[in-house]
C-alpha cells in the first residue's frame, strides 16, 4: 500500500498554521485593547496623585504655621515630593508639589500651588504624569471691603491645562 504519511503531515501543518495565525490576530487585538485600558488607568492614577499633592499641601498649610519652610526672605518657592504607596506597601508613584508664596501678602493674598503626579517606580521611568495648578485664596477679608471673605482658604480653581 502506498504511504499517505507525507500529505497528512502537510495538511496538518497547514491547518496548524491557519489556526496559529487566527489566534495571533485575535491576541493582537486584545493586546491593543489592553494597552489602551492600561494607559487610561495610568493617566487616571497620575491625575489622582496630582490631586492628592494639592490636598496634601492644603493640609500642611492649614496645620503648620511654619509651612512652607523657607530658608531666606528672598526665597518664595518651596518644592517637595511625597511617595505614594499601594495597599501592599509598594511604591505606586509620587506627587511633586510646588508652593509659591510670592503673592501671599495683601492685596494679592494668593498662594500658588502646582502639583505633578507621576506613576512608576521611584526615580522613574514614569509611566504617566499629570500636572495641576491652583490658587489658594488666603485673604481673610474680601479685597477692598471689610466683610469676611467666604472663599478664605479655598482653592479658586484646579487647572489641568485644558485649552480654550
Amino acid at each position: 500500500m502506498k504511504s499517505r504519511g507525507g500529505s497528512t503531515l502537510v495538511a496538518a501543518l497547514l491547518i496548524s498554521v491557519v489556526l496559529l495565525l487566527a489566534g495571533m490576530g485575535f491576541l493582537g487585538q486584545r493586546a491593543a485593547q489592553n494597552r489602551a485600558v492600561n494607559g487610561a488607568l495610568l493617566n487616571a492614577q497620575a491625575r489622582a496623585l496630582a490631586e492628592s499633592g494639592i490636598e496634601d499641601a492644603l493640609q500642611k498649610l492649614s496645620k503648620d504655621n511654619r509651612f512652607p519652610p523657607l530658608n531666606a526672605d528672598s526665597q518664595t518657592v518651596f518644592t517637595y515630593q511625597e511617595t505614594a504607596l499601594d495597599a501592599g506597601g509598594n511604591p505606586l508613584g509620587e506627587s511633586q508639589v510646588t508652593v509659591d508664596v510670592t503673592y501671599r501678602q495683601a492685596p494679592y493674598s494668593i498662594i500658588k500651588l502646582t502639583s505633578i503626579g507621576r506613576v512608576g517606580p521611584p526615580g522613574g521611568p514614569w509611566q504617566a504624569t499629570a500636572q495641576l495648578e491652583s490658587e489658594l485664596d488666603v485673604a481673610p477679608k474680601v479685597r477692598g471691603a471689610a466683610t469676611v471673605n467666604p472663599n478664605f482658604f479655598k482653592l479658586l480653581y484646579l487647572r489641568s491645562g485644558q485649552s480654550f
Partner: peptide, 8 residues
C-alpha cells in the same frame, strides 16, 4: 509698593 485697586 503694593498696587491699589488690584482685583483677583
Amino acid at each position: 509698593v503694593a498696587p491699589t485697586g488690584w482685583t483677583l
